[in-house]
Design a protein around this nucleic acid. Structure first.
Length: 622
RNA sequence: GGGGAUGUAGCUCAAUUGGUUAGAGCGCCGGACUGUCGAUCCGGAGGUUGCGGGUUCGAGUCCCGUCAUCCUCGCCA
């Protein structure tokens, strides 16, 4: 054993170790120099131990003078009790300290480009932290997330393994199937002019595994999509991919409910109630303006189209004449919370509606002295009463209305509902509550030198919902054809098999989404295991028979070779991690993420390559 | 691809209507301090205000362009 190899971690030492010789390896967190001692807070991912270098040992004392923050060290010495009254209850090793007898600097560290500690000072800009990701990852809170992610994956693997699932790897180099997202392409050196595609998901392979008889499959799979990024989107992301044979929708939903409950229990010690509520897509869109509604708060949307039929108000009249709808949100007690300037065009709320293409956001305050009464103006003398009744308007409420195309009304009111829910604190993210709690509790604990009492999460912080009964197709105005709402391998409902071609807009799919706190955290479907049904779906998506054969011939052939009924789901692991870890930034849950421009700021990827490499590939840049 | 925000010291941020030599905290360097607690006290170094152009007697500040980063809509079967 090398002399520098550790006997314990920086989180291990306790009073029982007093008198023992130990060696610790780790990094310098902080140095406090005195004439007679140097104190070093010594850390690794397990904890922090105070190391003392004493002046009577001239050699180590001199060496300690030269230390800097984030140096990597090996320290050998003796564990001793801290002098009475100097113990610290707030750190695990606080009763003892290590007296250094020898010091090995394993590696020095230059002046830090940013503050690694997240203590007091604000975090540096993300781009500089991404550039030095290896330093940023030394931050305790990032380490916690990385550990949580491991715990999540381990829980999933154990859960599925215990139920007979096999984890099977599928290829990274596959065939481009230009339906849906853009593929990342990989040029073939052996076959000039030909390309592999990196998988957007293992969808086809897992279906083929079902056909091969591996009836319970899962994979924690990397998926790649060459699309523009968002705060919650990376070019490569991870899915828990699951597929089962001889199952129906309920089997998948039940399994995922059990898995979700198991995850919450293992990761956060919470017991969430199952089964999860279910909501039909159509209801979700009308009542919440979203296919992934956040049900931690109410504020449902109310349809007023029928009552608006006689309206003479120009905006409503023209919207209805164009086949549109009129729907409203009631903000309880909102009349006093939103000023007229926040409500007029360009104000806070209309801006939200405008983002989602709504031409105008109508409002009406229900106050005792409201003159003119805008609901009368919008709906007329005869109808404003029934409108008021249906909305349940009370004095002090604010009514927000949009009259427009149905999809616009749903999107805009759905966005407004989310905006209002956040602005009026109708729901709280657990991490926001925790931040408030920590700000007071940790400060108090620090002052009193006691361990901070941990914030307690509740099962109610995690609101699960299934959205089911999605439509099969959606007409794409730009492409002038139907596109699959889920994906083209999804099975229509049994009763819709026969009318896919005659009434595509009315067909529903055996698809389902798992929603957690207003985030889509999973999506799946029962697949087409009959070749004729699959062929019809392709046809409906505008694929000619030979086109379908060229792209998916292997699947169509396989479906005729004893394909069992099958279905599955994919959970967005990164998003799960975000919600469990309490962040809205996907980069916080990935060890080495890309930035918004899909660049790795640390390595510099993507980057130009040697002309020789291009020549090998037969590629000329224009 | 559209909209928005930001860019000033190693880091986080100031700098009045366009007006002296661009400041502070943290970090860094040096010193002090007999047990500290991600210290404290004293001193010091550190800037082509992202880059390029323009307006002006004078630009961190105004204008044009450009680059970078983030947020957002489109997009993401």
């Amino acid at each position: 054993m090398s002399e520098w190899q550790r006997t314990h971690t920086c989180g291990d030492l306790r009073p029982t170790h007093i008198g023992s010789p130990v060696t610790l390896n780790g990094w310098v967190l902080a140095i406090r120099g005195y004439p007679k001692q140097v104190f070093v807070d010594f850390k690794d991912r397990y904890g922090v131990t105070q190391v003392v270098f004493e002046a009577d040992d001239a050699e180590v004392f001199a060496a300690a003078q030269a230390l800097g923050r984030e140096f990597c060290l090996s320290v050998t010495g003796e564990v001793r009790a801290r002098i009475p009254g100097k113990e610290r209850a707030d750190i695990a090793t606080g009763a003892v300290e290590l007296v250094a007898r020898s010091l090995t600097v394993l590696n020095a560290c230059p002046t830090l480009p940013f503050e690694i500690n997240e203590f007091g000072s604000e975090l540096a800009n993300e781009d500089i932290r991404l550039q030095y990701r290896y330093l940023d990852l030394r931050r305790k809170s990032l380490q916690n997330v990385i550990v949580l992610r491991h715990r999540l994956c381990k829980t999933i693997r154990d859960f599925l393994d215990a139920r007979g699932f096999l984890e099977i790897e599928t290829p990274l180099l596959g065939k481009s199937t230009p339906e849906g997202a853009r593929d990342y392409l990989v040029p073939s050196r052996v076959h000039h002019g030909e390309f592999y595609a990196l998988p957007q998901s293992p969808q086809l392979y897992k279906q083929l595994l079902m056909i091969s008889g591996y009836d319970k499959y899962f994979q924690i799979a990397r998926c790649l999509r060459d699309e523009d990024l968002r705060a919650d989107r990376q070019p490569e992301f991870t899915q828990l991919d699951v597929e089962m044979s001889f199952v129906e929708r309920e089997d998948i939903l039940t399994l995922m409910e059990q898995l979700s409950a198991e995850i919450l229990h293992t990761v956060h010690g919470l017991k969430v109630a199952t089964p999860f509520p279910r909501l039909a897509y159509a209801d979700a869109m009308v009542r919440y303006g979203s296919d992934k509604p956040d049900l931690r708060f109410g504020m449902e949307i109310t349809d007023l189209t029928d009552l608006a039929a006689a309206s003479e108000f120009p905006i409503i009249k023209s919207a209805l004449a164009d086949g549109g709808v009129v729907r409203a949100l009631v903000v309880k007690g909102g009349a006093a919370k939103y000023s007229n300037s926040q409500l007029k065009p360009g104000g806070e709320l209309p801006k939200v509606a405008e983002t989602f293409k709504a031409k105008i956001l109508l409002n009406a305050k229900a106050t005792a002295d409201a003159t003119p009464d805008l609901l009368v103006k919008y709906f007329g003398d005869a109808t404003h009463g029934p409108v008021r009744e249906r909305l349940g308007v009370e004095t002090g409420d604010l009514v927000l209305l949009i009259a427009d195309k149905e999809s616009i009304v749903a999107d805009a009111l759905g966005a407004l509902r989310n905006h209002l829910g956040a602005a009026l604190k109708l729901y709280r993210n657990w991490w926001d509550e925790k931040a408030e709690y920590d700000a007071t509790e940790e400060a108090a604990a620090k002052k009193e030198r006691r361990p901070a009492k941990a914030f307690e999460m509740k099962p109610e912080h995690f609101n699960f919902l299934w959205v089911v009964d999605f439509p099969m197709f959606m007409y794409d105005e730009d492409e002038k054809r139907h596109v699959a709402i889920h994906h083209p391998f999804t099975s229509p409902m049994d009763e819709d098999f026969a009318r896919m071609e005659s009434h595509p807009g009315e067909c529903k799919a055996k698809a389902y989404d798992l929603v957690l706190n207003g985030s889509e955290v999973g999506g799946g479907s029962i697949r087409n295991h009959r070749q004729d049904v699959q062929s019809t779906v392709f046809k409906m998506l505008g694929m000619e028979a030979d086109d379908a054969k060229a792209r998916f011939g292997f699947l169509l052939d396989a479906l005729q070779s004893g394909a069992p009924p099958h279905g599955g789901i994919a959970l967005g692991l990164d998003r799960w991690c975000m919600i469990l870890a309490g962040t809205t930034n996907i980069r916080d849950v990935i060890a080495f993420p890309k930035n918004k421009q899909a660049r790795d700021l640390m390595s510099g990827a993507p980057a130009a390559v040697e002309p020789r490499q291009l020549k090998d590939l037969g590629i000329k840049l224009s």
